[in-house]
Computed example of a mutant assay.
Amino acid sequence: MTRVEYLLVGYGIAGATLAAELRHRGHQVLVLDTLQPDSASRVAAGLMNPVAGKRFALAWRADELLTAATAFYRAQEEHLKQPFLRELPIIKLFSSIQEQNTMLARSADQPWQDFVPDPTGELPEIAGVQQEMGGLCIQRGGYVLVEELLTALTAEGLREGWLRHETFDWGRLVADPAEGFIYADQVHARHVVSCEGAAAVHNPYFRWLPLTPNQGEVLEVECAGLPAEVVLNKGAYVVPLGNGRLRVGATYRWPPFAEGITPEAREELSQRLQAMISLPFRVTGQRAGVRPAVRDRKPLLGTHPETPGVHIFNGFGSKGVMMAPRLAQVMADWLENDVELWPEVNIRRYFTLYSSLPAAAGPASSASRS
Rank of each mutant, 00 (worst) to 15 (best):
E268Y: 10
M1L: 08
L18T: 05
E336P: 01
A250M: 13
A184H: 06
R348N: 13
Y73A: 04
P111M: 04
P280F: 04
D63G: 08
R106A: 15
Q215S: 03
K54L: 11
A228P: 04
N337S: 15
L335K: 00
Q274D: 09
C195R: 02
E125A: 09
V116P: 02
A324G: 05
D114Y: 03
S370I: 00
A359R: 15
K92C: 11
G309C: 02
A69P: 15
L80T: 01
D185R: 05
L163Q: 04
W342S: 10
Q113Y: 09
E196P: 08
R86F: 12
V345G: 02
D338P: 03
N203C: 11
L88A: 14
L241E: 14
A328R: 01
L88Q: 13
Q76Y: 09
D296I: 12
V221E: 03
V144G: 13
A332R: 00
W112D: 11
E156L: 08
G157T: 00
R253M: 14
G235N: 05
V230P: 06
Y237F: 15
D63W: 04
L8R: 02
R253E: 15
S368W: 03
A14C: 04
E220H: 13
V193K: 06
L7V: 07
A45M: 03
P325I: 00
P256E: 03
S194E: 02
L209Q: 00
R42L: 05
G315M: 02
A57P: 00
P124Q: 09
A52M: 11
R245W: 00
R282H: 09
E147L: 05
P111K: 10
I91F: 03
E340S: 12
A57T: 13
A360Y: 10
G142F: 01
L173R: 08
E148D: 00
L269R: 01
Q186L: 07
P83S: 10
E148I: 00
W208M: 03
L93D: 09
V129R: 06
G289T: 07
L8P: 01
G128W: 07
G289P: 07
H188G: 10
P363Q: 14
R266V: 00
E217D: 15
A184E: 10
Y252I: 13
R74A: 04
E229S: 15
L88V: 11
L335A: 04
T352A: 15
R369W: 04
R86G: 10
P292S: 13
L246D: 02
A19G: 08
R253V: 13
F181Y: 12
L7M: 09
A359H: 08
